[in-house]
C-alpha cells in the first residue's frame, strides 16, 4: 500500500515538473517574446528592452525557468506584464470563486446522477429506465454554455427568478450569493450530471449481476437492501474514477460558464489575460489549472486504491 502511494506520488511530482517545463517553453518560445507581445507592434526597441530587463526575460531560458519554477514552489507567480500586480494575488482571489462554482456544480451533478443512475439501472428493463437513459444521453450532448443560455432565457429573462449575470461574495450578501450561484452551478452541473448518470447506471447494472448480490438476496435481503449494503461500494469504484475526470472537466468547463454569466473567476482571468496579451498572467493561470487537473487525477488514483484492495499490490 505504502509503496503504491509512494510510486503514485513520484509520478505526480514528475508530471508537475514536466508540465511546468511544457507550459514555460510554450509561452517562452513564441514568435518574439512576452515583452514584444504585450507592448504590441508599435513599441520602440528601448521600451521592449526596458520591459525585458524589468521582467528578466532577457536572461537565458534555463535561468528564467529556474527562477519561475522556484517562484511557483514558494507561491510567487511573478507580476502581471500589464497591471504590474502580483499574479499570485489575482489568481488566489479568482480561484476561490471558481472553486465555489465547481463544487456547487459537482453537488448538482451528484444530486442528479446518483438517484437517476441507480433508478435507471434498477429499472433497466422497464420503460422508465429506458426513458431515463434516453434523457441522460440527450443531456450529455448539450454543451454547458448552451444550457446556461437557455436557463438565462427561461429563469432570468422570462420568469425573472434569478439574475442573468454577476457575482456576489457570500460574506457580502449570502442570499444574493446563492441566487447568483444557482444558474451557473445548475448549467455546469446539469450536463455533467447527465454524463455521470450513464456511468452510475452502468456501474450499478454491473453490480446487479454479481454473484455476491445474489447471495445477499438468498440470505433474505431485499433487492434495495442488498444494493445499498453490498452493491454501492463496488459500484463506487468506476464512479470515483469518472468523478475525478468530471471534476477536472468541471474546472475547465467553468472557464466557459464564467464567460456566460460574467463571473470573476479563474476562467475570466485567463481570458482577460489572453485579450490583453499578458502572457505571464496566462502562464500562471494555465499552470494552476494544469496542476489542479493533475492533483485531481492523483487523488482519484489514491482513492481508487483505498476503495479497491485488489489494486494495492499492483
Amino acid at each position: 500500500m505504502l509503496l503504491t502511494v509512494l510510486r503514485r506520488t513520484a509520478v505526480f511530482v514528475a508530471s508537475i515538473v514536466a508540465a511546468s517545463v511544457l507550459v514555460f517553453l510554450f509561452m517562452a518560445v513564441l514568435p518574439g517574446d512576452a515583452a514584444e507581445v504585450s507592448l504590441g507592434t508599435n513599441a520602440t526597441p528601448e521600451a521592449v528592452a526596458a520591459v525585458r530587463a524589468e521582467f528578466g526575460t532577457d536572461r537565458p531560458l534555463p535561468t528564467q525557468y529556474v527562477d519561475w519554477a522556484g517562484g511557483l514552489l514558494t507561491g510567487d507567480f511573478g507580476r502581471s506584464l500589464i497591471s504590474r500586480e502580483s499574479v499570485t494575488a489575482q489568481i488566489s482571489d479568482r480561484l476561490q470563486v471558481t472553486m465555489i462554482l465547481v463544487f456547487a456544480a459537482m453537488v448538482v451533478s451528484l444530486l442528479i446522477a446518483l438517484p437517476l443512475g441507480t433508478l435507471a439501472a434498477a429499472r433497466h428493463q422497464r420503460g422508465s429506465g429506458l426513458a431515463l437513459s434516453g434523457v441522460s444521453q440527450l443531456g450529455a450532448a448539450v454543451p454547458a454554455f448552451l444550457a446556461g443560455i437557455l436557463l438565462v432565457a427561461l429563469f432570468s429573462v422570462t420568469l425573472g427568478w434569478f439574475p442573468s449575470s454577476g457575482w456576489t461574495a457570500p460574506d457580502d450578501d449570502f442570499v444574493g450569493f446563492l441566487r447568483q450561484l444557482a444558474l451557473p452551478a445548475i448549467s455546469l452541473g446539469l450536463v455533467e450530471g447527465a454524463v455521470l448518470t450513464r456511468y452510475v447506471r452502468s456501474a450499478v447494472l454491473e453490480v446487479l449481476r454479481e454473484d455476491f448480490l445474489r447471495t445477499a438476496r438468498a440470505k433474505g435481503l431485499t433487492r434495495s437492501q442488498a444494493l445499498v449494503r453490498h452493491g454501492l461500494r463496488n459500484a463506487a469504484i468506476p464512479v470515483v474514477t469518472v468523478l475525478g475526470l468530471q471534476l477536472a472537466a468541471l474546472l475547465i468547463g467553468a472557464v466557459v460558464i464564467e464567460r456566460v454569466y460574467v463571473i470573476p473567476g479563474l476562467g475570466s482571468l485567463l481570458l482577460d489575460g489572453v485579450s490583453s496579451r499578458d502572457l505571464l498572467l496566462v502562464q500562471g493561470v494555465v499552470m494552476v489549472l494544469v496542476v489542479a487537473v493533475l492533483l485531481i487525477n492523483y487523488v482519484v488514483d489514491l482513492l481508487y486504491t483505498v476503495i479497491d484492495p485488489r489494486l494495492r499490490g499492483s
Partner: peptide
Amino acid sequence: MRACDLLLAFPALLLAIMFGAVF
C-alpha cells in the same frame, strides 16, 4: 504512456487558449 498521461492534463479548451495567447 506517461507522456500521454501528461497530455491529458492539457484539455482541448486550455490548449486552444494557450495557442490563442501565443499565436
